[in-house]
Amino acid sequence: MTTFLQVLLNGLMLGGLFAIVAIGLTLIFGIVKVVNFAHGEFLMAGMFVTWLITTRLGLHPYASVIIVVPMMFLLGALTQRVLIQPLMSAEDDHVQIFATVGLSTAMINLALLIFGADIANTPNFGLRTPIEIGPVRVLSGQLYIFIAAIILVAALQLFLKNSQTGRAIRAVAQHRVAAELMGVNVPRIYILSFGLGAACVGLAAVLIAPLYPTSSNIGTYFVLTAFVVVVLGGLGSIPGAFFGALVIGLVDSLSGFYIGSDLREAVVFGIFLLILILKPSGLFGKRMTLSHLS
């Protein structure tokens, strides 16, 4: 029983980890309608900066959030302005995908050039301390990630629902031409949204860096699961991404223990396919507003 509870808890924590990585991705996809294949490398960049700040200045890794999040916002906004926006008018949408794939490769190799192939280890300042909850235990850093993911989802929802900018963002997401006719500055909203999504992954980077050694290819460890989570949650749905991440985390953990570590990816992707067949719009997707076809 204890073991079962421990497996369950591990799964929830893993879900929280996947969620915090995936939220930025689903935000960008939902609004700008661009699949950002460089998302994992944004995470990697944020983790390297967190590592630099923590080791060079001796600060608590969480303190680097005041630098990393604005920096990632700028990086995201810049990516949209310089790389994606000129391609928005391309006849084929897929051009943008290839641009982000190119960005991903460039960033991985740039990191190799700057930081080398070795792992960079962010001091964990006690964030790897196990906390006992009854018979089971969880790492403090994992717990903070889980809580941060919930707060981030709630904050984004509030922002999108209630603020003027949030309404403009939703209008653009629903129908970009209609929003433009209503006087919304669409390119500006895109730049803002891309920046916002990148800032979310910046927050994820700060929280993850003390728990995982950083390397130039660390992004590839997370990004495939992040895509699965985004699709499972219903493309562009933020609460969907959160619950999708929990499902994947639990399935991963349970199948890893009860079926076998070598088969867990088969189980995760098997269930993923099954859900897509039964409910193609994802767990939380509306019956496809098809707004992205506009």
Partner: peptide, 20 residues
């Protein structure tokens, strides 16, 4: 005897299995 993908981000279930 159990394999796992090298880019895994969680080995806790494998650890539990070894312990069990």
């Amino acid at each position: 005897k159990s394999g796992y993908p090298a880019n895994t981000v969680d080995m806790s279930s494998l650890v539990l299995e070894l312990r069990e």
